[in-house]
Simulated assay, not measured.
Amino acid sequence: MVYSYEPHHFEEFEEGQTFRSPGRTITETDVVMHAATTSDWNELHTNEEFARERDFDGRIVHGPMTFVQAIGMVMRIGILERTAYAFLGMNYMDLPNPVRIGDTVSVDIEVAETKALESRDDVGLVVFETEMTTQEETVVFQGDLKFFVLKTDQTEFGS
């Protein structure tokens, strides 16, 4: 496992490389801010009594917030700092278990694919298999994140 906070250009990524983010504890404030910015005040996230009556035994974090936290944690690793040109999307995303307020989550990523592009000489495609787990190693997010990453001779966007 590589713990790296150094930016990587396209040529520095190799299939099979792995990276791990620092942990982060999800707070009440995170949930309230997400609800406020998305207007998603679903009671599973905002009403303890309502959520206790459901299968979750208490409030859970929004699924989209889990995804957003995963992306943020990938960026926090540092390997895409100033080299990520574009996030292109995903082929799949799974949220097999809920995140709860107070969970400490971290992300493991593996370089699943690197591909030089005939149509672009400034960037290459890097696909990361991504998994977020809680402090108890419960998997709460899985997905393949696709990025255009700058090549080594591209030190600034548009150069």
Results as ranks from 00 to 15, higher is better:
residue 149 V to R: 04
residue 123 V to D: 03
residue 10 F to V: 07
residue 77 I to R: 03
residue 91 N to K: 02
residue 149 V to K: 02
residue 145 L to G: 04
residue 129 E to L: 08
residue 98 P to S: 00
residue 71 I to Q: 11
residue 113 E to T: 10
residue 152 T to P: 00
residue 92 Y to E: 11
residue 38 T to K: 09
residue 120 R to D: 08
residue 45 H to A: 07
residue 96 P to R: 05
residue 116 A to V: 05
residue 74 V to N: 05
residue 81 E to D: 15
residue 126 V to D: 05
residue 27 T to I: 01
residue 105 V to F: 06
residue 11 E to R: 03
residue 61 V to A: 08
residue 70 A to Q: 02
residue 138 T to I: 14
residue 44 L to M: 11
residue 16 G to M: 02
residue 14 E to K: 12
residue 76 R to L: 04
residue 104 T to Y: 00
residue 66 T to L: 01
residue 20 R to E: 12
residue 22 P to Y: 15
residue 115 K to E: 10
residue 21 S to R: 08
residue 154 Q to M: 15
residue 146 K to Y: 08
residue 10 F to N: 02
residue 27 T to S: 09
residue 83 T to G: 13
residue 116 A to L: 00
residue 73 M to W: 06
residue 135 Q to Y: 05
residue 88 L to R: 12
residue 36 A to Y: 05
residue 102 G to Q: 06
residue 146 K to M: 07
residue 127 V to C: 07
residue 40 D to S: 14
residue 130 T to P: 03
residue 127 V to H: 01
residue 85 Y to S: 15
residue 135 Q to R: 10
residue 123 V to F: 02
residue 84 A to Y: 06
residue 57 D to E: 14
residue 28 E to F: 07
residue 117 L to T: 11
residue 100 R to P: 05
residue 133 T to Q: 13
residue 105 V to N: 06
residue 49 E to V: 15
residue 125 L to I: 14
residue 87 F to E: 10
residue 108 D to H: 11
residue 136 E to Q: 11
residue 16 G to F: 01
residue 34 H to Q: 09
residue 128 F to H: 02
residue 137 E to C: 14
residue 71 I to G: 08
residue 4 S to G: 08
residue 27 T to G: 01
residue 5 Y to H: 15
residue 119 S to H: 13
residue 154 Q to A: 10
residue 104 T to A: 13
residue 101 I to V: 14
residue 147 F to L: 10
residue 98 P to H: 00
residue 139 V to E: 06
residue 136 E to H: 12
residue 4 S to F: 01
residue 59 R to G: 02
residue 6 E to K: 12
residue 107 V to Y: 02
residue 135 Q to V: 03
residue 90 M to L: 14
residue 47 N to W: 04
residue 150 L to N: 03
residue 84 A to G: 12
residue 127 V to L: 09
residue 77 I to D: 04
residue 20 R to H: 09
residue 114 T to Y: 02
residue 51 A to F: 08
residue 101 I to L: 00
residue 55 D to G: 15
residue 61 V to Y: 02
residue 77 I to L: 07
residue 58 G to M: 01
residue 73 M to D: 00
residue 151 K to L: 04
residue 104 T to R: 15
residue 14 E to H: 11
residue 67 F to I: 13
residue 100 R to M: 05
residue 139 V to Q: 06
residue 33 M to G: 03
residue 29 T to S: 15
residue 41 W to M: 13
residue 69 Q to I: 15
residue 41 W to E: 09
residue 136 E to F: 07
residue 103 D to P: 06
residue 88 L to N: 10
residue 44 L to P: 04
residue 18 T to E: 12
residue 111 V to I: 13
residue 20 R to C: 02
residue 48 E to H: 09
residue 84 A to F: 06
residue 52 R to W: 03
residue 136 E to Y: 12
residue 112 A to V: 04
residue 42 N to I: 05
residue 63 G to Q: 09
residue 107 V to F: 04
residue 28 E to W: 03
residue 10 F to K: 04
